[in-house]
Amino acid sequence: MNIFRLAGDMTHLLSIIVLLLKMNATRSCRGVSLKTQELYAVVFVCRYLDLFTNFISLYNTVMKLIFLASTFTIIYWMRFHKVIRVTYDREQDTFRYQFLVLPCLVLAMVLNSEFTVMEVLWTFSIYLEAVAILPQLVLLQRTNNIDNLTGNYVFLLGSYRALYILNWIYRFMTEPNYRQYLVWISGIVQTIVYIDFFYYYIKSWRNNEKLSLPA
């Protein structure tokens, strides 16, 4: 564990806490993409199957359980909470799952380091995570008034991936034989997906304006 990895994990955790607090405090999920949250649920379930087979550390296990529980809580609120579910932008959140899930599944079957169920699902989760934010970004673009917390949520999520890249560089330089090309390339793609958002987020912050993304 190095400082970049820890900072990345904490940023990831913070992004989810921001989203949970926002929804709980405002009783609203306006501007939040249920599709992205459900894709993250698929990502976490497929990746953390090793909770049953492989113990890495208490930190690792606890964080995995927190990510799973918090994501399923968000989905539950958006689908079933009496007040919150009414505020969901169903008509705007139209991204099709299959455009992301199917290509990632095919890619994971072809490009993996071992053709076993566990390994293919793990690789699938790596590919899917890289693009899971897309429905959220599309929804943000369609939302005229992006509230601060939704903007912060996406910004923190993007920062988490950028910090992971620093973590990989650090590990590559300090650990012998540490390399994981599929994870690195997916992580870089995932970070690039955010660059456009980062640009407008920082611009609106510097100009003290409300965040809005050009159509």
Binding site: R5, D9, D50, I56, K64, S113, Y178, R179
Partner: peptide, 10 residues
């Protein structure tokens, strides 16, 4: 921990 071994991240 090359390739498949590197599953210690979140």
């Amino acid at each position: 921990a090359a390739g498949k071994g590197a599953h210690d991240e979140l």
